[in-house]
Amino acid sequence: MKISKLHYPLADSFHVEGKTVVAMGLFDGFHKGHQEVLRRAKVEAEKVGAKFAVLTYDHHPALVYKKMAAHEKRYLTLLDYKMQLFEEFGVDQVFLVNYSYAFQSQTPAQFVTNFIERFNAVAVVAGFDHTYGDKQTATMENLPKYANGKFKVITVPPVDSDGKKVSSTRIRIELDSGNVDEVNGLLGRPFQTKGVIVHGEERGRLLGYPTANVEHSEYQWLPRIGIYVVTVAIAGEKYLGMASIGKNVTFSDVHPMTVEINLLDFDQNIYGEIVTVDWLHYLRDEIKFQTPEQLINQLDQDANETRQYLKDHPESLN
């Protein structure tokens, strides 16, 4: 898969060989709605013998429009992982555009001329609510007018789950509620994050439950505080674990937020390893225990429930 990092205006030397079918969107989350847009584009590309391409952006377009709070700058799917998912889906070409004020200031007609036509697009595919500039005029409903017969416009309707639209906003709300089971249904795969194993305070080892501290990017959206069943991929192998997102309130009232994972039946030194975490199931909220013994008893119960989850879902380690 070829990735072209683009800035407005495009360089005169920029050139695309052959015709393309272009799927447009930020695709943060890569959920079932996004997958339907990509599927439609892939089918169209195969039908007309064109390259399957994606036009996406290097950050939230909203950064251009407003001052964003720290949590609003986080992503469900960080850029490297999104590129990996595109490649696994069969995308041939990614046009990764810097979404700047100058870019969004183009008229819709200029966007078509400056980008879509230079991509040699024979068809453009996007979700019904996708915009490519001014939200009032740069709509999918208006795109055929700007295309003026130069390329086909395919608008994909919303994908529903339980009578509600599958969306990145819905997924963020579910993650903030700890509902990773629901999130995974909306994604069609486990919610996944990536981080590096760093040193922590090593209290878990003293309790008989040593933990791997996973340091995530500050831009990664995480589930709410709580205890979860997870799998962790280390050097190509998956291991079952129970993850704690929290502040270790049993030992301190001012402890920073951490992600700590106890890997069951595992005893290796993995400091410095970059790992991927699949978030599978919510077990419970974080609890402040009065004694370490109470915490150990709860961890025993958590471990039993984690093992039972694997028995009920043996595919989790595949």
Rank of each mutant, 00 (worst) to 15 (best):
D278T: 12
I296L: 00
I261H: 00
L240S: 07
V254G: 11
A303Y: 06
G272R: 14
L280Q: 08
T250Y: 12
L295N: 06
G272P: 01
V275Q: 08
D278R: 11
I261G: 03
I270P: 05
T306Q: 00
L295M: 07
L299G: 07
A303K: 04
G236Y: 04
F289R: 05
G236R: 04
N297H: 12
V259R: 08
I261M: 02
A303M: 11
K238A: 00
W279E: 04
S252W: 11
P292K: 09
D267N: 15
K288N: 04
D278C: 11
I274G: 03
A303F: 05
V249S: 15
V259A: 13
N304S: 03
I274L: 14
G236A: 03
T258K: 13
A243S: 06
K288E: 14
L264I: 10
D285T: 00
T276F: 07
D267F: 15
H281W: 10
W279I: 04
G236T: 01
V275H: 08
L280A: 05
D302I: 04
Q301C: 01
G246W: 05
E273M: 11
A303V: 12
I287C: 05
Y271H: 10
W279C: 09
P256R: 00
W279S: 06
T258A: 09
N262F: 14
K288S: 04
Q294G: 09
Q298H: 02
M257Q: 13
V249P: 15
Q290A: 13
N269E: 15
V259S: 14
T250R: 11
Y282C: 01
L240K: 08
V254T: 15
Q268T: 07
L263I: 15
H281D: 07
E286Q: 14
P256M: 10
Q294Y: 04
N248H: 09
L240C: 14
L295G: 02
L240M: 00
S252K: 08
E286W: 09
T258P: 01
D278Y: 04
L280H: 14
I296C: 10
V249R: 14
W279F: 10
L264V: 09
M242W: 06
G236S: 12
P256D: 11
H281A: 04
D278E: 13
W279M: 10
I296R: 07
L283D: 09
K247D: 13
S244K: 03
I261Q: 06
Q294S: 01
D285C: 03
Q290K: 06
M257S: 11
L240H: 02
L283C: 08
I274Y: 15
M242S: 10
N269I: 09
P292W: 05
N297V: 12
G236D: 09
Y239Q: 07
N297M: 12
L295T: 02
